[in-house]
Design a protein around this nucleic acid. Structure first.
Length: 749
RNA sequence: UGGGGUAUCGCCAAGCGGUAAGGCACCAGUUUUUGGUACUGGUAUUCGGGGGUUCGAAUCCCUCUACCCCAUCCA
């Protein structure tokens, strides 16, 4: 478990501590209507991860309430994804369809309570009756149906007596609710369709908002975690469970931001378009962000999970950089995978002073990877190197082979270029080279310094392989659709060369092709006759980057100008109050404004003012602290009174307590409604202003923090606050901060 | 436009009135027979803007702005 908690884990811990649930039970509830992608992986990591961290469990539930879009092949894909990621669901796979009978019973209960009715208007009318975001809707006349009528109709709907769309069951809530979702949401619709599990048994199917909360409840879920777009649905979730007066405990819903990654798309619709439009080769195309795609490409489950862990969980819509994912897979591969040599674009090199052949022993792992294993590298007169590793006219900073610059053949000898052979078009077709016999890797006595070591392959022994190079599927950071597709996202190299050990010995299925990247033996297309490797990800390439963009000028974008909107005008009475507050009571305009514009606040203020004539201090307290409490509550639900607030301010005025303590006392009043004087007395919160008491505490703090003293003296004046904070902390907030400030400043100078 | 959310470095993200964590990316240096890895150091005088409260504000109050979600018999 990561030691730093996200907001969901914080909630779970609080609930556990409060004894709200015996056990944490989460669920991963996909609709089986598409292939899971890395966004699902995030949700899986959260739900299964939380269950694991708190010794609870996580269910897998297929939310199969819409028979027309769902299919059993998707449930298999979903199960595969979870297993591949290494999680285990609790018990059997659950299906919302398992609960159809129970759900139906709950619907009947709701009807009997007068909380649901059968509506029989058509879709168009329903839309009209729903109103708009700014206008209230109205209930159809069918809302008046009797319980008996509703019961009868629902039963006949279930039996299949009506056609699709003739009737629906709706919750009877509020057609003028500000939350559109609460305007009598649909609970059931008629659907004469074949369901992949229940067949033709049901003619009616529950809607998400009805089925989901109850399925959670039925399974004993404690924390129902979903994505942000369901925030508005939470109110129905609560309404259904509360209205039914179910036996506690009941689940609560929490939302987090779904995952977005740049240069790709994540919506089911867009993914489907790509697959069906033939832009990619199926759901497991390695360029797709589907779990099947990552798996086929060679990503490991560990790397995906690490990624999910690194990006965190929050509520801000965000777009994660693919570089973060790429880092995770590289980081996972680096210490695990054998290094091997592969040449993608071969250039022939003839070593003119070499006769015969030999086999060179070479470790699969570099010195910094503590793993054992090696293979034989055939070596003879004719070899291939990467075309990019030779340059006749090298750019500045080029480390590889040139007519003037020798290079090491990795694990073998140093060579230098003697002659460049070109064809009629001026294309280089061969290099004539010379090797240094004394330079053999491991026993080099030549004393020749080279700037780099390159991969190479013996011409006769090298094996031909197919290598598939993948680049990002889209060229735009936030692709809209097909028009943003990167035309070069797939490059197939049919005749790459690889060392024979990779094919013959098969030391692993994932490799680092030295200096190129990590590659994976394609699980489907690979055969001994036609080996195929997928590029998982390239190595970091600081040379390639430098070449492409010599200087990446990062101009700091100018701070964007913010336009201030109009502030709503004050009404006449508000204006009158404002004028009186500023002129008569000498309040500053901001405080007066806050008070004057709020009916509740101003009357509270004036009531307090009648007890204590301290207009400014009172105004500050009311417009800041009391305002917070009055935001969501009415005056009569508050536990404290205006009189008590006045009392608190009086203590402040008399300097019995500090402003800091006043806040603390106020919090207490909000919770308990106790008198401020009593709170202060009971907790001994009276302010300490005597320097004789404070000074020794400061000395102690200074003695304990020599580093910070030094930093302060070096000019970090922010640290004054640190010292004041420490002193206040050790006095329980009671030290008079003004005195502390003065004393600390004095002692540190 | 009503309601519900969100805003902290180029990208994620901690932070809950007392020194602006961390990761990715980036830059520099050291090591290196991978221009990889590893290691070291550098990157926010400032938290969407403006006010206010406070000895002290990213954190509390007011206000403005931008973005996301909601008017499927989808989930």
């Amino acid at each position: 478990m990561s030691e730093r908690k996200d907001f969901l884990r914080t909630i779970v811990e609080e609930d556990l501590k409060a004894g709200k649930y015996k056990e944490v039970i989460t669920r991963f509830p996909p609709e089986p209507n598409g292939f899971p992608h890395i966004g699902h992986a995030k949700s899986i990591a959260i739900n299964f991860g939380i269950a694991r961290d708190y010794n609870g469990h996580c269910n897998l539930r297929m939310d199969d309430t819409n028979p027309t879009t769902e299919d059993t092949k998707y449930v298999e894909a979903l199960k595969d994804a979870i297993e591949w990621l290494g999680f285990e669901w609790h018990g059997n796979v659950r299906f919302t369809s398992d609960y159809f009978p129970k759900l139906y019973e709950y619907a009947i209960t709701l009807i009997k309570m007068g909380k649901a009715y059968v509506d029989s208007i058509d879709e168009e009318e329903m839309r009209e009756f729903r109103g708009t975001v700014t206008e209230a809707g109205k209930r159809s006349k069918y809302g008046e149906r009797t319980v008996e009528e509703n019961l009868d109709l629902l039963e006949r709907m279930k039996k299949g007596e009506f056609k699709d769309g003739e009737h629906v069951l709706r919750a009877k809530i509020d057609m003028s609710a500000a939350n559109m979702k609460m305007r009598d949401p649909l609970l059931y619709r008629i659907r004469h369709a074949h369901h992949f599990r229940t067949g033709n048994e049901w003619a009616i199917y529950p809607m998400y908002d009805f089925a989901h909360c109850l399925s959670d409840y039925i399974e004993g879920i404690s924390h129902s975690i979903c994505t942000l777009e369901f925030e508005n649905n939470r109110e129905i979730y609560d309404w259904v469970l509360d209205t039914l007066e179910l036996e506690p405990p009941r689940p609560y819903q929490y939302e987090f931001a779904r995952l977005g990654i740049n240069y790709t798309v994540m919506s089911k619709r867009k993914l489907l378009e790509l697959v069906e439009g033939g832009q990619v080769n199926g759901w497991d195309d390695p360029r797709l962000p589907t779990i099947a795609g990552y798996k086929r490409r060679g990503y490991t489950p560990e790397s995906i999970l690490t990624f999910c862990d690194q990006i965190g969980i929050a509520k801000a819509n965000s777009m994660v950089d693919v570089a973060q994912l790429e880092f995770c897979i590289r980081d996972d591969m680096n210490p695990k995978v054998p290094r091997v040599m592969c040449v993608l674009d071969p250039l022939k090199v003839t070593i003119e002073n070499y006769e015969g052949s030999e086999e060179i022993d070479a470790s699969y792992y570099p010195d910094d990877v503590p793993k054992e294993g090696s293979r034989k590298l055939p070596f003879s007169r004719e070899i291939y190197i990467e075309r990019e590793d030779f340059s006749e006219t090298p750019p500045k900073g080029y480390f590889r082979l040139t007519p003037e610059q020798p290079v090491r053949l990795k694990h073998a000898y140093i060579i230098s270029c003697k002659e460049v052979i070109k064809d009629d078009n001026g294309r280089i077709i061969e290099i004539k080279a010379e090797y240094y016999p004394a330079s053999k890797s491991g026993s080099d006595t030549s004393g020749i310094k080279v700037k780099s070591a390159i991969q190479w392959l013996d011409a006769k022994a090298a094996k031909t392989v197919e290598v598939r190079l993948y680049d990002r599927l889209f060229s735009s950071e936030a692709p809209e659709g097909v028009e943003d597709i990167n035309p070069n996202s797939l490059e197939v190299i049919e005749n790459a060369l690889i060392e024979p050990a990779v094919i013959n010995e098969k030391p692993d299925e994932r490799f680092q092709f030295e200096r190129q990247g990590y590659f994976y033996a394609d699980p489907i297309d690979y055969s001994d006759e036609n080996p195929v490797f997928n590029k998982i990800v390239g190595l970091k390439d600081s040379w390639g980057k430098k070449k492409k963009s010599p200087k990446q000028e990062q101009k700091p974008q100018a701070k964007k100008e913010q336009i201030d909107g109009e502030v709503a005008a004050m009404s006449e009475s508000e204006q009158a109050r404002y004028d009186r507050y500023t002129s008569e009571l000498k309040l500053n305009s901001e405080v007066a404004n806050t008070l004057a514009r709020d009916e509740k606040l101003s009357s509270f203020y004036e009531e307090a003012l009648s007890t204590l004539h301290s207009p400014v201090a009172l105004a500050n307290m009311v417009s800041n602290e009391v305002a917070r409490e009055l935001k969501e509550n009415d005056v009569d639900t508050l536990k404290f009174s205006a009189k008590q607030v006045a009392e608190l301010v009086r203590m402040l005025d008399e300097e019995t307590i500090s402003g800091k303590i006043a806040k603390q006392v106020f919090e207490e009043m909000v919770k308990s409604g106790e008198n401020p004087t009593q709170i202060v007395e009971a907790k001994g919160l009276i302010q300490i202003s005597d320097p004789a008491i404070i000074a020794p505490i400061i000395d102690e703090i200074i003695a304990k923090n020599p580093d910070n003293v030094a930093k302060f003296k070096a000019g970090n004046t922010k640290l004054l606050g640190f010292f004041v904070g420490q002193v206040l902390k050790s006095t329980g907030g009671k030290a008079n901060p003004k005195v502390v400030n003065a004393l600390v400043a004095e002692k540190l100078h």
